[in-house]
Design a protein around this nucleic acid. Structure first.
Length: 519
RNA sequence: GGCCCCUUCGUCUAGCGGUCUAGGACUCCGCCCUUUCACGGCGGCAACACGGGUUCGAGUCCCGUAGGGGUCACCA
């Protein structure tokens, strides 16, 4: 039975890189009919774990990454919070101590620092002298009598090599002598991540540890812990990290200001903020930016698109295929096709996936996606009135591929603005209405025909206008451009006749009259 | 700095010794479609980090060099 895990620390947000690590773990377990476990690494947490966990769990749920064991679903290996598993860690520390694989160390932080600095000065590798190591209770008592406090350190091997067989990197070797006697239990009795992680992976029967490559150099000490405890080793797979846009540094939430210098990232960010502001969502950099998964959910991305894009960040099937739904991902995923080098996050390509998925989204679903944005922005009531459905469907249909993320609907709210509130774009008004001498008379005459035509739908007004243009022997652009500005206030928009139909005769005439009056 | 990892178009990648005058995708640039803006269609620009080997033959194997990155906590 394959069992994988993702172990987030409750930080209050779900990072893109974390999503990818989780995705690979999830895919691998699903593919092998195994299980995916969520474990909460809160050894270091102070307060509000639940609150800080919320966005993470919500993010996974939104993406459709489900877990077989963990918070909110329980499981046979509970508890899944490290803060609740300290008794197990204490046991493990005792065992390590008994076996002589760890020791109580009474050095003060200052003393350790002094040793390290001395080593640096002499340009030699730092290895702790173990001068304050207490191997007997008697020694321990003596140090305690001096008022010293103990931490527990690993008594790491100082010769030989640690060979890691990594499913992605192949064999990697570390000299044991370059390893430190890492602390596993702090002076205050709390435990360090490495100890907890190894114990939990064993207790949870994790078979494959798939994690980001920054953990590769932590692996020797974890192997030492596991072996000292007599645990069988899991298989390791160290995947590359996700790099920042246009760079090769690790993508980090903290470097947002720097990413904003990247134009594509900036554009994505602005687009999101525009939508967020329209629906009165707070947009602090801490909770709302493209490094965090919530951003995408809130501005109306499709989870399938995000998943597909993230999957391809470091993994590919072949030279052609790049569309993968959940089922295809599960079917085709493999660790041996994961790349070794970091892949940088490209907002443009993400958008391309999103646009593609959105364009294939059935109209009904698109309407449902878009509706909450109109409601939150105050254009449509909640619940919507009964004539709202057909109107919105028409709008979404007329929008065609223009709505890439659900929140984009807010760019097309002219249909909801009162006729006397339409703001005419100055430049467009000048260019299409004021400047062409024949615009006004043509529009006036065409208005008269619009007032009469039956039925008032796209096909009919289309024919009406074309006949009119033929009869007047004019270029179609003159009239249609003037009409568009008169009716929407803007130079660009949906197809003209769909626009007319959605607005309805009354609004069209009122808006044309208002435009003509302002000439 | 020590240790470890990585290196094909701007970006994501295919390539596991000859099929590579290096393929696909995104972006970008043209053209077409067209009432605008998108969409769409067609076409184009663009890469094997460098130097040595091995081999009849190297993007592909080996060794160096350079560059980039990760990690060196009583963080996770």
């Amino acid at each position: 039975m394959v069992r994988t895990r993702f172990a987030p620390s409750p930080t209050g947000y779900l990072h893109i890189g974390g999503v990818r690590t989780a995705l690979f773990n999830w895919l691998f377990s699903r593919q092998h009919g195994g299980q995916f476990i969520l474990r909460i690494d809160d050894t270091d947490q102070q307060r509000n774990v639940d609150e800080a966990l919320r966005p993470i769990l919500d993010g996974f749920r939104w993406l459709g990454i489900d877990w077989d064991e963990g918070p909110e679903v329980g499981g046979g290996h509970a508890p899944y919070y490290q803060s609740q598993r300290t008794a197990r860690y204490q046991q493990a520390v005792e065992t390590l101590l008994d076996k002589g694989c760890a020791y109580r160390d009474y050095a003060s932080p200052a003393e350790i620092t002094a040793e390290r600095e001395a080593a640096e000065k002499e340009k030699r590798m730092f290895v702790y002298s173990r001068k304050w190591m207490a191997e007997t209770d008697e020694q321990a008592r003596a140090y305690e009598a001096e008022g010293r406090q103990a931490v527990v350190r690993l008594k790491m091997p100082r010769e030989g090599v640690c060979k890691i067989q990594d499913l992605i990197r192949g064999d990697v070797e570390f000299q044991w002598q370059t390893e430190q006697d890492h602390v596993i239990q702090r002076a205050d009795g709390t435990f360090i991540y490495h100890l907890a992680s190894v114990v939990d992976d064993h207790d949870f029967e994790i078979t494959h540890v798939i994690r980001a490559v920054e953990h590769l150099s932590n692996t020797p000490r974890q192997i030492f812990i596991a072996q000292s405890l007599g645990y069988p080793l899991p298989q390791y797979a160290h995947i590359p990290f996700v790099a920042e846009p246009g760079g090769q540094n690790k993508l980090s939430k903290r470097k947002l200001a720097q990413y904003l210098k990247n134009r594509d990232f900036q554009k994505l960010c602005d687009r999101g903020k525009g939508i967020a502001e329209a629906i009165q969502l707070p947009t602090s950099d801490d909770t709302f930016n493209p490094v965090i998964i919530d951003f995408y959910r809130e501005v109306g991305f499709l989870p399938e698109a995000i998943l597909n894009y993230i999957l391809l960040l470091g993994w590919s099937l072949d030279d052609k295929t790049e569309e993968f739904g959940r089922a295809e991902m599960i079917k085709h995923f493999s660790l041996n096709r994961v790349n070794k080098s970091p892949a940088s996050f490209d907002p443009k390509k993400l958008m391309a996936f999103q646009a593609r998925y959105m364009s294939r989204c059935p109209i009904k679903q698109k309407v449902a996606l878009v509706l909450p944005y109109l409601q939150k922005a105050g254009y449509v009531q909640d619940p919507p009135s009964c004539d709202e459905g057909p109107k919105l469907t028409k709008i979404v249909q007329a929008a065609e591929q223009r709505i890439e993320v659900a929140g984009d609907i807010l760019d097309y709210v002219d249909f909801y603005t009162a006729d006397d509130q339409i703001r005419f774009d100055e430049k467009a008004f000048e260019k299409r209405l004021r400047k062409p001498a024949d615009a006004a008379p043509l529009l006036t005459r065409f208005r008269a025909q619009l007032a009469e035509v039956e039925p008032f739908d796209a096909a009919t007004t289309d024919k009406l206008l074309h006949d009119f243009v033929a009869a007047e022997d004019i270029k179609i652009g003159v009239l249609i451009n003037a009409l568009r500005v008169a009716v929407t206030g803007k130079a660009v928009g949906f197809g003209m006749f769909e626009t007319l139909e959605i607005l309805g005769r009354e609004s069209c005439l009122a808006r044309i009259d208002r435009a003509l009056a302002q000439l």
